[in-house]
Simulated scan of single mutants.
Amino acid sequence: MSTPHAAGLPLFVSAGDILTDLVRERDSRWLSHPGGAGWNVARAVARLGVPSAFAGAIGSDCFSDELWQASLDAGLDMRFIQRSQRPPLLAIVHQAHPPAYFFIGEASADLAFDPARLPEGWSAAAQWAHFGGISLARQPLAATLVALAADLRARGVKISFDPNYRNLMEHGYRPTLETMVGLADLVKVSDEDLRCLFGTDEDSALASLRAMNPQAAILVTRGPHTATFLAGGETIEAAPPRVEVVDTVGAGDASIGGFLFSTMRWPQRSWREHLSFALAAGAAACGHAGAHSPTLDEVVALMPAQ
Rank of each mutant, 00 (worst) to 15 (best):
L141I: 13
S71V: 13
F80E: 01
H288G: 05
E298R: 02
V181K: 01
A142Q: 15
A15F: 09
P87R: 12
G8C: 10
E234F: 04
L279T: 09
V50W: 01
H5A: 15
P115S: 11
G75N: 04
E120D: 06
C62N: 03
G105P: 14
T176S: 02
G156M: 08
M303A: 05
P294V: 06
H171D: 07
S160P: 10
V50F: 04
A278K: 00
P99L: 15
E178M: 05
P87T: 14
E178G: 00
G16K: 09
P88D: 14
I256A: 05
A100H: 07
Q139M: 11
M264R: 12
L145K: 08
L206F: 15
T228R: 08
F198M: 02
R242I: 11
S84Y: 06
E106M: 03
V13M: 07
H225V: 01
T179A: 12
L118D: 08
I18P: 01
A254G: 03
T144K: 12
G16H: 04
T235G: 02
V157A: 12
F80K: 07
Q306G: 11
N164S: 05
A37M: 03
D61N: 10
G250V: 00
G232N: 07
M303F: 01
D201W: 11
V181Y: 11
S270A: 12
V41A: 01
W30A: 04
R83K: 10
L67K: 00
R265D: 12
L9T: 05
A231V: 05
V181G: 04
M264T: 11
F131R: 07
V157Q: 12
P224D: 01
N40F: 11
L9F: 11
L197S: 03
R269Q: 13
R79V: 13
H94N: 14
P175N: 07
T235Y: 00
H33W: 10
A211F: 06
A184M: 04
W39N: 09
G75K: 04
F259I: 00
